[in-house]
Computed example of a mutant assay.
Amino acid sequence: MPPAPRPPRWLLRKPQDDAPARLFCLPYSGTGASMYHRWPQRVGPAEVIRIQLPGRENRLREPHYGTYEELAGPLTEALLPYLDRPFGFFGHCAGALPGFAAALHLYEQGLPTPDAVFISSQVSPHDGPYGRFLGLTDDELAVELTALVRAMGGEPHPALIDMSLGVLRGDVEANRAYHLDKPVRLPGALYAVGWDADKEIRPGQMTGWDQYAAPGRCHLSVLPGEHYAFLDAPEALTSLLGEAMQRALDEHGGADAADSVA
């Protein structure tokens, strides 16, 4: 029997052919796809697919992607074979903006666009850039990275922190460079997710996302938890994601659509 084909370098594993829908998850600043190791393999009908960006983990030797606009083209080209069924993008904080930029690129190129874009703890592009990390020195970023590694369940090693600091700085600079002069309305649904104890981005700062979807297609939710609560895939979040992806599947014809792509 020939060996199974290797997944694209952008993905930790090849998506399953029998998944009715797909949810592509982008990593938080300074981290890789393994940050989603506590997440389930599916939320509702959607397979959770973790995206690996250049310069981290198994792509450590590759240079940083640069800006979100420079990332969007290669990323969406790699994902295109897997956009053959209802799909969504999820990202938290600065990790949400590459997902939005990818969705915008797909829309501008006339390619399949996400049925749902999930924005967790991030202001809209015309309200940004915004965030405490933008003003931190490298030493201060190292402290934040250490806290993040612990929040992910790891034990920070000084050499690992030093290695990851360059990636984090690149991600921060990409965030700093991203701004839209005015909102762009995407065709799919948009879900802006805030957290009631989040000290980095308050839910009230996320209302600008309402202009990035058609009337009635933007949903603002406030979930219980602090900034890193999403790492544990709390039930409130996975339920929201699962219900939204089921709604997207239903809009495509439900089980009949799933059968046609299986």
Rank of each mutant, 00 (worst) to 15 (best):
S164G: 03
L241V: 00
Q205F: 03
G128Y: 01
Y178G: 03
Y191I: 12
D84A: 08
P74M: 11
L168T: 03
S164V: 15
L75K: 13
N58K: 04
H157W: 15
G170P: 13
A46L: 09
E235W: 01
P234H: 11
E77V: 01
H252W: 10
A177S: 11
L97P: 04
A213H: 03
A96S: 13
G131M: 06
A213D: 03
Y68C: 02
Y130S: 11
Q109I: 05
Y28F: 15
L240M: 13
F89D: 00
A255P: 09
F87L: 08
G135C: 05
T76F: 06
R150D: 05
D181I: 00
L11A: 06
A244H: 06
Y28N: 11
V123F: 04
P5K: 08
P114R: 02
R9Y: 13
P8I: 01
S34H: 11
L26E: 02
Y107C: 14
E155W: 10
G66E: 03
G88L: 03
A214F: 04
A248H: 01
M152D: 10
T31P: 11
V48N: 09
A177D: 09
L160S: 11
D84V: 06
Y28M: 07
A159W: 04
G135L: 06
L249Q: 01
D198L: 02
G30S: 03
F90T: 00
N175W: 09
H227V: 03
D17K: 15
V167M: 10
L83I: 09
P8V: 00
R56E: 04
K182S: 07
M152R: 09
F100Y: 08
L241F: 00
D232C: 08
E235G: 09
S34K: 04
L145K: 10
P224L: 13
P5L: 04
E47Q: 12
P81T: 11
T137I: 12
A147K: 10
V143F: 15
V184M: 07
H37I: 00
A213I: 05
